[in-house]
Computed example of a mutant assay.
Amino acid sequence: MEYRARYITEDIKLSSYDDKFFKSDIMFEHHMLVWFLSGETKIVQADATYFFTKGDIFLIPRNQLATIINYPKDGQPHKTVVMHLSTNRLQHFYAARNIKPLPLKSPKIFSFSRHPLLESCLASLIPYFDMEDIPGDIASLKITEAISILRTLDKDIDHVLANFEEPGKINLADYMEKNFMFNLPLEKFGYLTGRSISTFKRDFKKAFSSTPQRWLTQKRLELAHYQLTEKKKKPLDVCYEVGFENLSHFSFAFKKQFGIAPSQLVEQQ
Rank of each mutant, 00 (worst) to 15 (best):
G39V: 00
V160W: 09
K255Q: 10
N88V: 13
L117S: 08
K232R: 10
H115M: 06
Q218S: 15
N88W: 12
K79W: 01
I170K: 08
L184Q: 00
P107G: 06
L59Q: 07
E222T: 04
R97F: 04
T80V: 09
N63K: 13
D133S: 08
G194C: 01
K256L: 12
K205W: 10
E222D: 09
M27E: 14
A5C: 05
K232N: 10
Q91K: 10
L65D: 07
K20Y: 13
Q64Y: 02
N63S: 09
K231F: 09
F21S: 14
S140F: 15
H31M: 03
E40P: 10
F164C: 01
A261I: 11
L265I: 02
S120G: 14
F21G: 09
A139D: 06
E2R: 15
T9F: 04
G190C: 08
Q91V: 04
Y3C: 09
F164M: 03
G39R: 02
R89G: 11
P101D: 05
Y3I: 12
F250Q: 05
F208A: 03
N246I: 08
F58W: 04
S251D: 05
S16D: 12
L118M: 07
A146H: 00
Y175A: 07
Y94R: 01
K178W: 08
E29S: 07
H31R: 06
H78K: 06
Q264E: 15
K23H: 10
A224N: 03
K231T: 11
L90E: 06
L221I: 00
D137H: 14
I126V: 15
E29M: 02
R214C: 05
I43W: 08
S106I: 15
I157L: 04
I69T: 11
F58H: 05
Q213R: 13
L265A: 02
R151D: 03
T144N: 15
D11K: 11
P185C: 04
K54A: 14
F254T: 00
G39T: 00
K20L: 13
F164V: 05
F189C: 00
P107A: 06
D56Q: 03
F129T: 07
H225W: 09
K100Y: 12
M176G: 08
L125I: 02
V160E: 10
K234Q: 11
N179H: 05
S15K: 12
L153P: 01
Q257R: 10
I69H: 07
F200D: 09
